[in-house]
């Protein structure tokens, strides 16, 4: 909508009056357009989770498929339901799993924090840069995302190895005499996660910071706020939506990360994604892998809901502003 006084936008944007074009598609057309992607997502996204849930209550057996059926006809008469909590007891009984969960949360949390500490000033710097180079800088943030994730993680192996580039460099300038043990430790995992997910932190931060009216800061300074205080009192609170989104986008996938701990972490770097992978591919214990997945989901439900709530709010806001 262009400016002008007409009160139309408010009336027009009323939730019930969305898109006349589609409302008039007719019930058949509209229904079909909804049905196709809806059906796809139900079949290949939602239903699979229910199956994971179901199989997590089954028992491991050797065979195809490698789990016992949950519901069975006995003598063609009785419907027998066998729910086994064996996988869950196993899960919570074994310290290894509990430790893996907490370690995953810890690693994800710390990495998210570092990504925020590095990403925020970068996003701020880009948002405040000259318009002419802003897009170029943004492109530079996104570019690694278009190259391979696997290769970017792989790149760190050569750098962090005992006889790798970082150690060679540090020894060459004389900071250390012996190579530091970085690869195959948790530190390498932190570095890997921050590196791989940094663009996901920067982009939402940038988009809130860029939208922010610079005159707000100027007004704060005009009213006697020192720049640093103006930042704390104006910029930071206003960028909270970006911080939340960025942190969610890093934290949630980081909890379940597999490639990074597998390639950069050591044998003792326990992360839940790795455990699930091992249960499934090495032990072929599908019920256990499913139980691990269900437990991981439970941990992630709160942050995922937070994220979706945020998405919904952004959507509503975008609609309001037209």
């Amino acid at each position: 909508m262009l400016g002008g006084g007409g009160g139309a936008p408010k009336e027009r944007r009323h939730p019930n009056s969305a898109g006349a074009a589609t409302r008039r598609l007719g019930v058949g057309g509209r229904g079909l357009v909804i049905a196709i992607p809806y059906f796809w997502l139900l079949l290949f996204f939602l239903a699979p989770f229910l199956i994971v849930m179901k199989i997590s209550f089954a028992e491991f057996q050797v065979g195809v498929p490698p789990y016992t059926p949950l519901v069975e006809w006995v003598d063609d008469q009785y419907l027998q339901v066998r729910m086994s909590f064996a996988s869950y007891f196993y899960l919570f009984g074994d310290e290894l799993y509990v430790a893996a969960y907490f370690n995953s949360l810890k690693i994800a949390f710390v990495s998210t924090l570092f990504a925020l500490l590095l990403g925020y000033p970068m996003a701020y710097g880009i948002a405040r840069a000259d318009k002419s180079i802003r897009n170029l800088l943004l492109l530079a943030v996104v570019l690694p995302f278009w190259t391979s994730f696997l290769i970017r993680v792989y790149a760190w192996i050569g750098i962090l190895k005992n006889n790798g580039l970082l150690n060679n460099f540090l020894m060459w300038i004389g900071v250390i005499n012996e190579p530091l043990e970085i690869l195959n430790t948790e530190i390498a995992v932190y570095i890997g996660i921050v590196y791989a997910y940094l663009p996901f932190m920067i982009l939402p931060l940038y988009s809130t910071l860029e939208k922010m009216d610079m005159s707000l800061l100027e007004a704060a300074m005009d009213l006697g706020c020192r720049p640093w205080k103006a930042f704390l009192k104006v910029t930071l609170p206003l960028s909270v939506p970006g911080i939340v989104a960025g942190c969610m986008l890093v934290f949630i996938p980081a909890v379940g990360e597999f490639v990074i701990p597998d390639l950069l972490g050591g044998a003792d770097t326990l992360m839940i994604g790795k455990v699930l992978w091992a249960e499934f591919f090495n032990n072929r214990d599908w019920p256990a892998a499913s139980a691990v997945a269900v437990a991981m989901l439970v941990f992630l439900v709160v942050p995922i809901m937070l994220f979706q709530g945020y998405q919904a709010r952004q959507e509503a806001k975008a609609k309001e502003q037209g």
Partner: peptide
């Protein structure tokens, strides 16, 4: 003629068939 939100645009959109 009317101010913001007085219903004039909604009335026009009903004449056009959008509402």
């Amino acid at each position: 003629l009317g101010g913001s939100g007085c219903g004039k645009t909604t009335l026009l959109r009903m004449l056009a068939g959008f509402e």
